[in-house]
Design a protein around this nucleic acid. Structure first.
Lengths: 342, 342
DNA sequence: TTCCGCGATGTTAGCGCATACATCGCAATA
DNA sequence: TATTGCGATGTATGCGCTAACATCGCGGAA
């Protein structure tokens, strides 16, 4: 039976059949013009092209996804978007995805592995071509689902021991160690540490661990009073540096596990007219925007967050085009930003 | 012809038909169990439910979208995700969308109306249920496409004169005016202004305009040397406040069109041991994280960015459920955050 | 001339789901 | 008893696209 015009009252958009009718060819010919034009005779091609323009045809990607089993959509699950580091990862990912006409669908897990699992289910139902997860801690069910789904999975951020599939990121441990080494070389072993809570936070744990290991390797003993846990805020940095400076023998340098803490520490020192780095050197972690804006500007370490997003998308694309890399863990390293504060 | 098992080698996921076969019913009965279980007899329902669990069925949302003409996906186009204000809007949007089992697909236009247009095309091809746009300046073609598409469109952020469809946001003009009024009441008419470039930036333009109008309404004349355009950075704030303080009669208060500029100004004053707000009061705009962290904490004005995202998603949902509101412009206002700096 | 080969185009059959309509059986009603 | 009504379930169709196969027609080789 011929398709009745009246049968689709809501379909305003032209379909392939409409273009085909207009050009006086079959739908397949239109498809060929769209996908590999070389297989269509020049005259026909031009006629079809004209009809395409005339009808303002745009492909229906939903229908295409149904039959081609490629949605062209990549799912990313992040704890929150209101975090500049994570946002930059997404920024890098969208940039790379755009090159392959892929789209990004984001879900926010609000730091809950349960929510993450729900989002994974939902994404798989949507037949996403690949999935990006933030971090390395997931429910067992999430892991199972993903392994069964057979789609590329990238875990981004802090590198896991055993990735679900692929992993892209850096070692917080190594990056922290690098900062401490820098401080060691310039200020000796008399180094303090201000970090946030390590519960449910593997990055924080790795940074503190990096600090400890690095000092140990240098043969230095860490005074327990030198390692202080504070809230991750400028206020935390203020009180933390206050506590360190109040010691009978205050540290010559302080490694803050976050720029936010470091900024608070620097500002507090300035308030007390304590010279940074003259009296006490201060280094941070993250290279947030404020790091370079502070006076003195903050010595810190920068994770390649934009690159993590970009690389993740690249890897996904490679997998989807059958060029799966041998390697499964991609350590993108970090950059020590030596500035004025240390 | 009966479906051959061997005919779908790649389809690992169970379909409705698989569940139906297992439960010994037709696919329609399974659909009913899924969508409105009341219409199915209890015994049947339980049998189907068991089969659903057994087969681990998950609906294929792509297929569903094709036939139901609802993708359950909302598209958002933002200039960048690497901006905490925008990220918070997205945060609010995902939170609200999650309530309706909708998903967010984001595109970054990198502040280019051309890119935005391409993203709109792409989103429409994906049959998104609604579209969120950041800001009010779009190509004519974008507007045409969106009006023709017949999907709800929300423009978020600074409120437009004539929205494409719906608009949610606040008046930068009014918000800036509110800060200036606050300064007027406390420090008199002797007020300076530090703002960024207004080219291609309607928000900045509105804020400056708000500053001017407010002073004019108070009967004050604005010394042209009091209005300075600086780069939107702390450094900009530093040099800007420096220039104002170097005047023979420096302003008693300064309104900075961005917290970043304000922060630079405050820090510069502290460096020079100029009391804030004792010698000069400083107010900002945006209520970034640093605003409350600074010493003195920054008086500023806060846009309801999270709420903008949430409200936008709510409106979309209302439209999609046939409850389109009368109103088309939603002014969510702003909050003056009176703190220490002014 | 006859037939082959191949470039150019068309036809068929679903992808997995949901809408619209059809059917069945049983209890209540006239 | 025949009829009606309705709750419970099934069948047919097609969303818009594409993979796989089918067909057509024309120039060149036998």
């Amino acid at each position: 039976m011929a398709r009745k015009q009246a049968a689709r009252p809501f379909a305003l958009r032209p379909r392939l059949a409409d273009v085909a009718r207009d050009a006086g060819v079959s739908t397949m010919t239109v498809v060929r013009v769209l996908r590999d034009p070389d297989k269509v005779a020049k005259i026909t091609r031009e006629r079809v092209t004209a009809s395409l323009r005339k009808t303002k045809y745009t492909p229906d990607l939903v229908a295409r996804a149904l039959v081609s089993r490629r949605s062209g959509i990549v799912g990313a699950i992040v704890p929150t978007l209101a975090n500049s580091l994570i946002a930059e990862v997404m920024q890098g990912m969208t940039a790379e995805l755009a090159l392959h006409e892929q789209q990004l669908i984001v879900g926010t897990s609000t730091y809950s592995a349960r929510h993450e699992e729900a989002l994974v289910r939902s994404f798989l139902s949507r037949r996403v071509d690949a999935i990006y997860l933030t971090g390395t801690s997931h429910t067992p069910e999430t892991v199972k689902l993903l392994k069964a789904a057979g789609v590329p999975v990238v875990e981004g951020g802090n590198l896991p021991q055993t990735p679900i599939d692929l992993a892209v990121g850096l070692s917080n441990f190594a990056a922290a160690g690098s900062v401490v080494e820098y401080l060691l070389a310039r200020y000796g072993t008399n180094i303090g540490f201000l970090g946030g809570s390590t519960t449910n936070n593997d990055r924080m744990r790795d940074r503190r661990h990096g600090f400890r290991k690095c000092l140990a390797r240098a043969g230095a003993r860490v005074d327990p009073r030198y390692v202080i846990e504070v809230p991750i805020s400028m206020a935390g940095g203020r009180t933390g540096i206050g506590a360190l400076l109040a010691l009978d023998r205050p540290p010559r340098a302080v490694f803050c596990a976050t720029d936010v803490i470091a900024a608070g520490a620097v500002l507090e020192c300035r308030r007390r007219s304590i010279d940074v780095p003259g009296d006490v050197a201060i280094a941070g972690y993250d290279d947030l925007d404020i790091a370079s804006e502070l006076v003195p500007s903050l010595t810190t370490v920068r994770s390649p967050r934009y690159e993590i997003g970009r690389k993740s998308a690249q890897l996904m694309h490679l997998c989807l085009t059958g060029n799966r890399p041998q390697q499964s863990i991609f350590d993108l390293g970090f950059v020590l930003m030596a500035r004025e504060s240390a």
